[in-house]
Design a protein around this nucleic acid. Structure first.
Lengths: 200, 200
DNA sequence: ATTATCTATAGATCTATAGATAATGC
DNA sequence: ATTATCTATAGATCTATAGATAATGC
């Protein structure tokens, strides 16, 4: 019954991966320990040899899926990111999609441990979107604000779109409208002459 | 023990109001029937004389709070709406705040009955934001898309901000960045000359 | 000897129903 | 007689723990 230390570590990682998909799909409260362990191919009793509590796993599995998405995003232009993010494929596949869109509202009601993970994750994702550009301090601050606003808009679009019934045309309309708005904001902030820009 | 028909109707309405606050505060899965009925001043057994199921109440109480918010918004300019929506007060008071920000992600995992309520609610809120303006068909379509995008961005800002720990400066930064971005988008779509506007 | 996993279960939930109670409404 | 609310409970969850089992690791 016991397995090698290496295998135990692999089993633990597999439980974390399984959890990150199930939590995104059904929400934190929608996945029981027994459910999860069965989906990972184990029985429930073993869970607490790997994790101190369910909240611990919520934080760890979310950190894991946030890091995975960040890796996937790295190197892409903001335009590419937005196009993929605001796709119907992303909206319709919660289990492999953005952890923020799937779980921010859930996280807001959970332990500080979970929320600290989300705040750190937002910083990570923001860093990836900003890339390694060497901007002046003011330009960097402006870019940070712009990209936070884009993240919020993209996330909001997915969240609203998912709340609509499956066959809803409104769901697609939301994605489209936000895609257009984000592209427009990127174009205008680059191309509009300074004298036409609002300064706060 | 029995009460007048009028009183029974009032009790029912009170349960719906209590539910709309508790659901926004703790999520649909975070509120049990016993919890809710106790908060409303009753015992759990009476619930099913008023509602067929918990899902029924989720739909009805959410429709109720969405309609209330829409009423509150009616008459305000989009700038006033955005300022109030993106305030710390709104972020920190889920129970009385936007139903979409609090429950869209939850609703996405629930029965179609609940999601139909949300889609209808988005249309209602959108109608209020657009006001009774008499625009040309193209201008109306454009305004509809613009306002959907603003709703998504504002909602996304609140959702992201709430996922951060209580003392997080990032939480405030998100609200500020999105406020600036929305004001900017309103200004540019009004003030930027046509030849500088991107057309899709 | 240690320990990763298993079986079993405690104790606290949860939704929903059944039947009792006491007041309304005919 | 009807019915809004109450008490009580069935049956299915849920998180977490206790103790058994069987393999690793010293």
């Amino acid at each position: 019954m016991k397995v090698t230390k290496k295998q135990a570590q692999a089993n633990r990682a597999h439980i974390v991966e399984t959890a990150s998909a199930l939590f995104r799909e059904r929400g934190y409260d929608g996945v029981g320990i027994a459910d999860l362990m069965a989906a990972a191919g184990f029985t429930q009793g073993g869970f607490y040899k790997h994790f101190r509590s369910k909240a611990d796993l919520m934080a760890e599995s979310s950190a894991c899926s946030i890091a995975q998405s960040a890796e996937l995003t790295a190197g892409a232009s903001i335009q590419e990111f937005v196009r993929a993010y605001l796709s119907r494929e992303h909206r319709d596949n919660r289990a492999t999609g953005c952890t923020f869109a799937a779980l921010c509202a859930d996280a807001a009601r959970k332990e500080d441990e979970v929320r600290a993970t989300f705040a750190a994750g937002i910083e990570t994702q923001l860093g990836v979107l900003l890339g390694g550009g060497d901007l002046s301090p003011e330009a960097a601050e402006k870019a940070r604000a712009t990209h936070l606003a884009i993240m919020a808009q993209a996330l909001g679009a997915i969240v609203m779109s998912r709340a609509c019934p499956d066959d809803s045309s409104l769901a697609d309309e939301i994605l489209e409208a936000c895609h257009v708005a984000i592209i427009k904001s990127l174009t205008s902030s680059e191309a509009v002459p300074d004298e036409l820009q609002l300064n706060n």
